[in-house]
Design a protein around this nucleic acid. Structure first.
Lengths: 148, 148
DNA sequence: TAAAGTTGGTATTTATAAATATCAACTTTT
DNA sequence: AAAAGTTGATATTTATAAATACCAACTTTA
């Protein structure tokens, strides 16, 4: 019952989401292909979007249209997020993980085969859910560095 | 004498730099206007570029042309650099400094009026000189977090 | 079971970022 | 003092990222 009332509940089919966002269905699917979003998928492979997904996509569109950051730019900014700190990854995992080593995309597009993330659903991960704008990513870095 | 031999020595007039980089003079000036580069300026306001400047501009062009990151994207990535850590800024300076608070451009485009950076020439600062690609910025974050 | 909606794919359009061209005034060099 | 180069500013071109349109096959809904 609690879950039902959260912003995370996947409720909107893609067409409804597109209408809310005032964009085309295919634009949303492009964002998925580019690894900017991870929609919920039903067993039949149909996508469902939550209120939080709508917020997230609105943020992406603002980055593109207002801040004039390209999609590849957004992916690179996502790559700056110190996911290994949030997830408390072991040193050995870090060096097996292209999310740690690389800087071309978000961790959920890069996760290593043998890390603790490999078996997880990134849609439910805090790195994905809570850090999708530049401000919150920089804020995370600040907070972590403050504890040195 | 030692200085004369470094990569930092400003030696190329803008036209020469443009020829080396195989771009137009105005493209270089646009990068400066966008705060991606800080050319050395003679007393007559004419620009001079060092070997290091050439490397830096080549890196910027690769980000634009190969990685497909827009100029505003590059500026936002620069904004992720924890300059306050490298500079050991006082807490009080941090909260007066838009480089710390903002995330729309590099610190040298944002430095606060009353911080220790205000009177410095950013061209000579390590933040500007040593952290101009995504790899080195992420690496800095990694290294700093490791010492927690 | 008919209507409405979704899937992945390719092809096309559109919007605009990035780069270039042009300009008169000024500076440096030889 | 003439030639070469630079300055900032505006206007224009070009390259392409972002978004849209279209498609046949499949799924859901009522």
């Amino acid at each position: 019952m609690f879950y039902e009332s959260t912003k995370e509940e996947p409720v909107y089919p893609i067409r409804t989401a597109a209408k809310i966002l005032n964009i085309s269905v295919h634009t949303i699917r492009m964002y998925e292909k580019e690894n900017l979003i991870i929609p919920f998928k039903k067993s039949t492979n149909h996508r469902l979007f939550s209120k939080s997904d709508i917020d997230r996509i609105n943020c992406i569109r603002s980055a593109i249209n207002n801040s004039k950051i390209s999609i590849n730019g957004i992916k690179t900014i996502y790559a700056m997020m110190p996911c290994w700190e949030l997830m408390n990854c072991a040193k050995i995992d870090q060096n097996n993980c292209s999310a740690y080593l690389d800087h071309h995309g978000p961790c959920w597009a890069n996760k290593g085969e043998n890390t603790k993330c490999a078996s997880k659903n990134c849609r439910d991960c805090s790195v994905y859910k809570d850090y999708w704008d530049c401000g919150s990513i920089k804020k995370f870095i600040k907070t972590k560095l403050k504890s040195i």
